Lab assay of single mutants.
Amino acid sequence: MGMPNRKYADGEVVMGRWPGSVLYYEVQVTSYDDASHLYTVKYKDGTELALKESDIRLQS
């Protein structure tokens, strides 16, 4: 078993793309699913969504 190939840690605050949009919002990573390679993130309004790594970026 190798290390999970994840870029962002639980609790890390990053920018997540809103689905169907080009806009990124501040989100907190809450979990990562090794099987689906999706991150569960929480937006400031409390919305929780699963995002692909390509829809997440570090805060500038």
Rank of each mutant, 00 (worst) to 15 (best):
S54N: 11
M15L: 14
P4Y: 07
S54G: 09
V41T: 03
D45W: 09
Q59R: 14
L51W: 03
Y43A: 13
V27H: 00
K42G: 03
D45Q: 03
V27G: 10
T30P: 00
T40D: 03
Y25R: 10
D10Q: 06
Y24S: 02
I56H: 01
D33S: 07
L58K: 15
T40Y: 13
M1W: 02
Y39V: 04
M1E: 15
K42F: 07
K7T: 08
M15H: 07
K42C: 09
I56L: 13
A9L: 11
V29T: 00
L58M: 12
A35V: 14
Q28H: 07
W18S: 08
Y24R: 02
R17T: 03
G16F: 08
T47M: 07
R57A: 10
H37M: 14
E53M: 04
D10P: 08
Y8L: 04
V27A: 12
K44D: 07
H37A: 14
Y8M: 01
D34Q: 08
V22T: 14
L58S: 15
Q28T: 15
Q28P: 00
L58R: 14
L58F: 11
L23R: 12
D34L: 06
L51F: 02
S31I: 02
D33C: 07
V41S: 00
E12H: 05
E26P: 12
A50W: 13
S60K: 13
K44E: 10
E48H: 10
S36I: 04
M15E: 11
D55A: 06
S31E: 06
S21V: 04
P19C: 06
K52M: 11
V13N: 08
Y39R: 01
T47Q: 09
Y25N: 05
E48N: 08
N5R: 02
V29N: 00
G46A: 04
D10Y: 05
A9W: 08
D55V: 02
L58Y: 14
Y8N: 01
H37G: 15
S60L: 12
V22S: 13
E48Y: 12
V13S: 06
Y39G: 01
W18I: 09
G46L: 04
E12L: 10
T47E: 05
P4D: 13
S31K: 10
L49N: 04
T30Y: 07
K42R: 12
D34T: 09
V14P: 01
V13C: 10
P4F: 07
V29A: 00
D34F: 07
V14I: 04
Q59C: 15
P4M: 09
W18V: 08
G20S: 05
L38S: 09
Q59W: 11
G11W: 06
G16S: 06
T40E: 06
G46E: 06
V22F: 12
A50V: 14
G20W: 05
R57N: 07
A35C: 11
G46T: 03
Y32R: 01
G20M: 06
I56E: 00
N5S: 14
L38T: 13
K44C: 13
K44P: 12
K52Y: 12
S54V: 11
Y43I: 07
Y8P: 02
G16W: 03
G46D: 05
P4T: 08
R6C: 05
Q59S: 14
T40S: 08
E48W: 06
Y39W: 02
V13K: 11
K44G: 10
E53D: 08
S31L: 04
W18A: 10
D55F: 04
E12R: 04
R6M: 03
S36K: 12
L23T: 12
Y39A: 01
A50T: 14
K52I: 08
R17H: 04
A35E: 13
Y24K: 01
H37Y: 10
G2S: 04
V41D: 01
K7E: 04
M3N: 15
S54Y: 07
R6L: 02
V14T: 02
M3R: 14
G2W: 04
S21F: 04
L23C: 15
S21C: 09
Y24H: 04
E48K: 09
G2R: 01
E26F: 07
L51N: 00
G46K: 04
A35I: 11
Q28F: 08
K7W: 03
D34C: 09
E48I: 14
V27W: 03
R6T: 03
E12G: 02
Y39N: 01
V29S: 00
